Amino acid sequence: MTLADPERPEVQLSLMTHDETAPVVPIASIEVDDVDARYAAAKASGAEIVHELTDEPWGVRRFFVRDPSGYVVNVLSHR
């Protein structure tokens, strides 16, 4: 379920129990201006990519990365 303020739809809170295309459910999602640049930076840093950079059918481009504490974070941009 995604909750958003009608006057600021870019600010969202999504509650997830499963993910349609990824192997794990992320703890949080972060929208960025340039997901390709963030993906390149994550790869260059040696971070563990859990779900490769993907164009999803519901209009986002995203990847999942594991943070230093072991949590999986969804990094995305809307197309």
Rank of each mutant, 00 (worst) to 15 (best):
V50W: 13
V72A: 14
A42N: 06
G46Y: 09
P26C: 01
V50P: 03
E56V: 11
V50F: 11
D19H: 14
A28D: 05
S14H: 12
H18E: 14
S69G: 10
V73Q: 02
L15A: 10
V73S: 04
I27V: 13
R66T: 10
V25I: 15
A42Y: 01
W58F: 12
L76D: 04
A22E: 14
E52W: 04
P68G: 05
G59S: 08
S45K: 02
G46M: 05
G59M: 10
H51V: 07
S77E: 06
E48H: 09
V73I: 10
V72S: 04
V25D: 08
S29C: 07
V11L: 12
L13E: 13
H18G: 12
E10G: 09
E52A: 11
V35F: 08
R66Q: 07
D67M: 07
I49W: 09
V11A: 07
F64Q: 04
L53E: 06
V75E: 00
S77W: 02
E10A: 04
V32A: 00
P23T: 13
G46P: 01
S29H: 04
D33F: 02
E20T: 10
A28T: 03
V60M: 10
E48Q: 10
I49A: 00
Q12R: 15
P23K: 13
P23Q: 12
Y39G: 04
S45Q: 03
E7S: 14
R66P: 04
D36W: 10
D67A: 05
L13Q: 11
D36G: 05
W58A: 01
L15V: 15
T17M: 11
V65K: 07
N74E: 06
V11G: 01
K43H: 05
Q12F: 06
E31T: 03
M16D: 12
W58S: 02
V50M: 05
A44G: 08
M16C: 09
V25T: 12
D55Q: 12
R38I: 01
A47S: 07
P26M: 06
A44V: 08
P68F: 07
A44P: 01
A47Q: 05
I27S: 05
D67Q: 04
D33A: 10
A40H: 11
V24G: 07
V35E: 00
P68N: 12
E10L: 11
T17L: 14
A22D: 11
Y39S: 00
A42K: 01
